[in-house]
Design a binder for these strands. Structure first.
Lengths: 334, 334
DNA sequence: TTGTACGCGTTATCAC
DNA sequence: GTGATAACGCGTACAA
């Protein structure tokens, strides 16, 4: 702290050239004689010099930093997204400021302010539940990409067709022969949850099923557990349960184990997201795959494209296909 | 983007005062007559002016940004640490730049360069496997805190006594009555892995057990699965298996399920870390708790203290107690 | 009480 | 090929 960080001046002095020359070898902005270039490179190495991005951004208004707002890194799906963003951001020399919003609109807005103050070049916002108006206002003029959230104006976004995914899950249960159903939905203000629920209803309608119930969860293990306990405490449980995400599905499986309900012999369970732990559960959990890592990567690529070509106003939208991952929790024992 | 942001100059011109006056009302750094102050405030409001944090940090060398280098956010233990750091950093207005090193020394060094370039005020480095020399060199003069990694010079750090944790796990297996053991260690260049392994050997020695084997894993599920398959393919499996982290323990449990080996009836398994999924496995996984969230928080508090009081050279060290979380994977069926 | 001038680290634009 | 210098937005001694 006390000792001043090494600057371009130190390097210049060390080699005995001007700062401009050092700057030139740093940016390859103009020809420099091979010998001096080598000298400069050596000095940079020896002094352990790293150009001050702050000052750099000060000049050409580029901070090489982006913001990433996700609800919660502790959630495996979002940590996958984060990893996808970060892995590819670094390739282009971008640093990523991580923000956990806890799905709260105010925190999102607060972080957006913080990010704007740091002059991030762009922002990736994942799973926002803010109203379109709030979100637009908070974003301001910062280039952005939305993930798992669509906006009416159809801004740039990355999305999987959650409605189709929900229908996929439901059809799978039906095709395997189950005839009474329950859906444990996510929180009502979550766009993905709403769509998955619609998908469930689509499935019910298509197969003309009327024997179904919907419970409202909050995407966390505990709510799956609670609802599962309620379901299994009653006399007749539904044959097939579609939880709107894997964490709640895991909660349901725990409740089943406690209640002595066997999966999949007595009840089939399907989740959503395909987070890593679904492979470890016993039985392994059938789920709908949503490729978090690739989605993060895609979001970043859209954002970078926007930054490099600010004038193409096309709001790019990348959509991923939900995929069924059939595992043992829905295996028909026939 | 196109339109130049409004600066302090614009405000000054608007009111007809100097920039310093505006600066003064912004920072309350000195007295300003109430009338001019009001005028300035009005202008700020009208022009929708927000001070440029970059320029501000440029002047007083405070970026209000820290760096966090972890091996991999996708790993639940590290994402917990990240959450702990971030949650408390934001309270003091600090942004956190997230970096995934994949345990690789070069990536760590590269990120450190990137962070230094962004003039982060400090860095938290988690689970580094770099040599002390490399690490010291890469860090340079940036204030830092190490988590799950000790340095000979005993810099500031957050740590749990992994050796004791390893011994704890081993003793637990012994006390529950198992008499032949296997340890699946982490990668040999990982300090925590080495310590846990020592703890295992401590336990073996104390109980005078000679019937044990050590397998070398890499902290990932797959290696637990592979090693588990090797173990169960042979005739006689050890009675108690201590995996150096939960992910490998989960792999072992999968291998057991495949091989028809029952847990805990035939083989007991204990992990390390107490990541969330250990609660979902079937049977639930006994493990040693390492409080990632609190460790992250502690690391941040040490770092902030260093930043606020740069002169107190005391290298603070916070140590957490490993705790046994006894669950069903080691329940003796007696 | 308020204004002037300088510096922070870097790049771009001129000269040489 | 290389060097000197203005400029970026803001804070702060120092001057008035």
């Amino acid at each position: 702290m006390e000792k001043r960080a090494v600057t371009i001046k130190d390097v210049a002095r060390r080699v005995g050239v001007s700062v401009s020359t050092v700057s030139r070898v740093l940016n390859h902005s103009s020809y420099v004689s091979p010998e001096t270039e080598q000298l400069v490179l050596n000095a940079i190495e020896e002094l352990h010099f790293a150009p001050n991005q702050i000052a750099r951004g000060f000049v050409n208004k580029k901070t090489s930093t982006i913001g990433l707002i996700i609800p919660d890194v502790s959630n495996p799906f979002f940590s996958d997204v984060a990893r996808g963003v970060e892995d590819y951001a670094i390739i282009d020399g971008f640093g990523t400021i991580l923000c956990n919003s806890d799905w709260r609109s105010e925190r999102e807005a607060m972080y957006l302010d913080l990010l704007r103050g740091r002059w991030v070049e762009g922002v990736i916002i994942v799973g926002s539940r803010s109203s379109a108006a709030d979100l637009t206002r908070a974003i301001g003029s910062v280039p952005y990409v939305l993930v798992e959230r669509l906006m009416v104006g159809s801004g740039p976004s990355v999305w999987t067709d959650n409605r189709r995914g929900g229908a996929l899950a439901t059809s799978h249960l039906y095709e395997r022969g189950w005839r009474t159903f329950a859906h444990i939905s996510g929180p009502p203000d979550s766009p993905s949850a709403t769509e998955r629920r619609k998908g469930f209803l689509d499935g019910m309608r298509r197969e003309s099923v009327t024997a179904y119930e919907i419970f409202e969860g909050d995407y966390r293990v505990q709510s799956g557990l609670d609802i599962g306990q309620r379901i299994f405490a009653r006399g007749k449980a539904p044959e097939g349960i579609f939880a709107a995400n894997d964490l709640m599905a895991i909660g349901v499986m725990q409740a089943a184990a406690q209640a002595g309900v066997r999966i999949p012999e007595d009840v089939a369970v399907i989740g959503y997201d395909n987070i890593a732990p679904t492979d470890y559960t016993s039985p392994s959990l059938t789920t709908i795959d949503q490729p978090g890592y690739e989605m993060g990567r895609a979001a970043l690529s859209i954002l970078l494209k926007r930054l490099h070509e600010p004038h193409t106003a096309t709001a790019e939208h990348i959509e991923f296909e939900p995929r069924l991952m059939a595992r043992n929790s829905t295996r028909k024992a026939t």
